[in-house]
Design a binder for these strands. Structure first.
Lengths: 244, 244
DNA sequence: GGACCTCTTTTGTGATCACAGAATACTCGC
DNA sequence: GCGAGTATTCTGTGATCACAAAAGAGGTCC
């Protein structure tokens, strides 16, 4: 409706989680700020990672387009990519939505996370310099604060930042891509569960991980991340999932 | 150029590897034959899996569109999805191409494969019924024949069929998605290497895997798949990669 | 008063057009 | 003959239009 040629100014925030000091190497940055559909893709990813988009929520190309001030086209492109990631479901001529979580899918995601992330953390450890370690500590502190105050969104953002600050220290593009795919899929669901049950039951395995990094104990880090995943998602699994 | 309204008939072959008797459960089938861009997505995936699209090859929306008899739009959608999978690179206003393989990326892919596929095979083993086992044997025989006759394309198709007949027996959508992402990325490259060095050096670890399945030895199957991956890609790695 | 049918609205999908930038081909000058 | 600069072609990107199908709302009939 009445937006002729290239609106140019799109109110998109940064493509990453907030206050990550230096974006990790590799990463699909380059100069994507100029390409509209790429910006929108990153923006929607961010919303999924941090649970701003909840499952069952109906997404619409036109609605998103007007909301972001662009035409359908770049939104379509972005949604296509997200569909390829498995983050959203585009059912033919019907509605676009975040797929519902089932017990089977949850187990699937959990297993994949346990297969990839502990190993990724262990491999990344040698590349975590003091700067990154400081970042991790700061993020962890912010996450603790969020847990204390019951700030679900803050918790998820900092949890995301913590994990990917580690993984991205390793330059492995494909491995990060796989892990991101997983987060894209369970992110929306975690938000729902945390919103329903609060963050008070969350235990902070990150402290153990930090100690492991400081002492250079790769195996301990691997175990800590595995526990972190199993604990967090185990809590969700018990509470949030109806028997499928 | 002169193709007005919906050409309808698109010369797309099946979305899967050829002569897989029953398409595995789960799988993104539904009724996607009707959606154009989904068909094209599957077609391009097939070409990537089996190495029909080689790295460095320039892809163009318009060229592909006219080749397939459709407009740019569905091709664009399909390419967007493939870009999300990491299978192709869309560099802004430049050209779309299959990313070049580097030693680092190769190691990355290899490591990811070793992390996921042996486990996937092991978990899938209980679900490999006699029908699937027969399929595996047949595919393996065809693969051997392809190796003997130096038929690179036949080898790759049957190798693909062998692995995914196993993985898809397990219904894990996300895990399969991750593995498919990996194959999409190294598929084009394998084709080049095999084409350059022939298939004569290939050893057939599949026979060991088949025996493990028949005897119900999960650990042996896991080891066999790991060896299969390491052998095959190790051969490539030594021969095909220039020092990056 | 409730179930069924119909009409309207909204949706994703595909096609076409327009534009800016990159890559290639071509030409001119040295 | 060759290199540099220019012009043309081709590219992806974004916008707009058109259409069929699905969902929702409304009314009607029993």
């Amino acid at each position: 409706m009445t937006m002729k040629t290239h609106p140019s100014a799109v109110a998109l925030e940064e493509t990453e989680a907030p206050d990550l000091p230096a974006r990790a190497l590799d990463d699909s940055s380059e100069s994507e700020g100029e390409i509209l559909h790429a910006s929108i893709y990153q923006e929607l990813r961010r919303r999924l990672f941090t649970g701003k988009i909840t499952p069952g929520l109906g997404l619409s190309t036109r609605v998103l387009a007007t909301e972001l001030g662009v035409s359908q086209m770049p939104v379509r492109d972005a949604l296509s990519r997200l569909a390829a990631d498995g983050a959203i479901e585009i059912r033919s001529k019907r509605r676009i939505q975040v797929p519902a979580m089932t017990a089977a899918r949850f187990d699937d995601l959990l297993q994949c996370r346990l297969l990839l992330e502990p190993q990724a953390a262990r491999m990344a450890m040698p590349f975590i310099d003091s700067a990154r370690l400081e970042t991790l500590k700061k993020v962890d502190a912010q996450m603790d604060a969020a847990i204390q105050s019951g700030d679900v969104h803050g918790y998820m953002e900092n949890n995301f930042a913590f994990h990917f600050t580690m993984y991205r220290a390793l330059g492995r593009r494909t491995m990060n891509q796989l892990i991101e795919t997983l987060w894209l899929q369970f992110g929306p669901y975690m938000r729902v569960v945390y919103g329903r049950f609060g963050t008070s039951n969350l235990v902070d395995q990150h402290a153990v991980a930090l100690r492991a990094i400081e002492t250079g104990d790769g195996e301990a880090l691997e175990r800590a991340i595995a526990s972190d995943i199993a604990d967090g998602m185990g809590l969700i699994g018990r509470n949030g999932l109806e028997p499928a």
